[in-house]
Amino acid sequence: MTTAVEHAIDRARDDGRAAFVGYLPAGFPDPDASIAAALALAENGADVIELGPPYSDPVMDGPVIQEATNRVLEAGFTTSDLFDVIREITRRTDVPVLVMTYWNLVLQRGIDTYAREIAAAGGAGLITPDITPEAADEWIAASKRHDLDRVFLAAPTSSDERLRMISEASTGFVYTVSTMGITGERASLDAAARSLVERLRIAGAERACVGIGVTTPAHVTNIAEYADGAIVGTALVKTLGSGGVDALGAKVRELVAGSRR
């Protein structure tokens, strides 16, 4: 059965474009504004919303996202608050909401409890940057029980065997890391991203979305040539922080315009 995230990506493809996945830190700049910002993503063309709960040791996050999530942490935002934010977003839009979370936050809550609460809030599933499929049996089982997508990451350094494992274990899409390193702005994307998507196709991945360093409409246009979707985070977080929700909406429209093939 096709999941909500898969359906969103397929609908974008049928419309002649790559899907646009927009990332924002949950609770930034405050819970109410976070909800408004996520809705602005949906209203201005995002196909999938990606929310990142704040974490004290975000190994993948660049300085812009770290600064935003630190602000949220200092304000006392909790995992329970995350579910409240998701619930309010999904009450007001049909655009699927994925949570990109470091695994320790899930373990602290309990894997099945976290999965159950995500599903009850209307969330579509999890992107898990720091757990691999072979270590995720309990999460895979919980995701099946609660009908949640599980999005694993593939990197340019991944072996062909690992890419097959990731492709088989993932639902929704495979998060295709464009280049090694943390999130943030880059003048150009690593050519390894195109090669990695080709390798993922051979490994059996039906949908691959490219993230890390995707910040301009030109980046999105380039990705649309070979991948199923583009994932943008830092550019959106920076815009929200400096210009608010209206500026964020305009930025999303600008980036989504680059997704047409």
Rank of each mutant, 00 (worst) to 15 (best):
Arg116His: 12
Val106Asp: 05
Thr93Phe: 01
Ala155Ser: 09
Gly110His: 12
Leu107Thr: 09
Thr128Cys: 04
Asp147Asn: 07
Thr101Gln: 04
Asp94Ala: 12
Asn104Thr: 10
Glu88Lys: 05
Ala141Gln: 09
Ser143Gly: 15
Leu153Met: 09
Thr93Asp: 02
Arg87Val: 04
Ala124Val: 02
Ala135Pro: 14
Asn104Trp: 03
Glu117Lys: 10
Thr113Gln: 15
Ile127Glu: 01
Ala154Val: 03
Ile127Ser: 02
Pro96Tyr: 02
Asp112His: 09
Phe152Arg: 04
Pro96Thr: 06
Gln108Thr: 08
Pro96Asn: 09
Ala154His: 02
Gln108Ser: 14
Leu98Asp: 03
Ala136Tyr: 08
Ile127Asn: 01
Ser159Met: 08
Ala154Asn: 05
Asp137Tyr: 12
Ala155Trp: 06
Trp103Asp: 11
Trp139Glu: 15
Ile140His: 13
Thr132Arg: 12
Ala136Asp: 07
Leu105Gln: 15
Arg145Gly: 11
Thr157Met: 06
Ala121Tyr: 01
Arg109Lys: 15
Leu153Phe: 08
Ile140Phe: 10
Ala121Val: 03
Met100Asp: 05
Phe152Trp: 07
Val85Met: 04
Pro156Val: 12
Leu98Gln: 11
Arg92His: 13
Leu105Val: 15
Arg145Asn: 10
Ile86Lys: 01
Pro96Ser: 13
Ile111Arg: 06
Arg92Tyr: 09
Ala155Arg: 08
Ala120His: 06
Thr101Arg: 04
Arg145Pro: 13
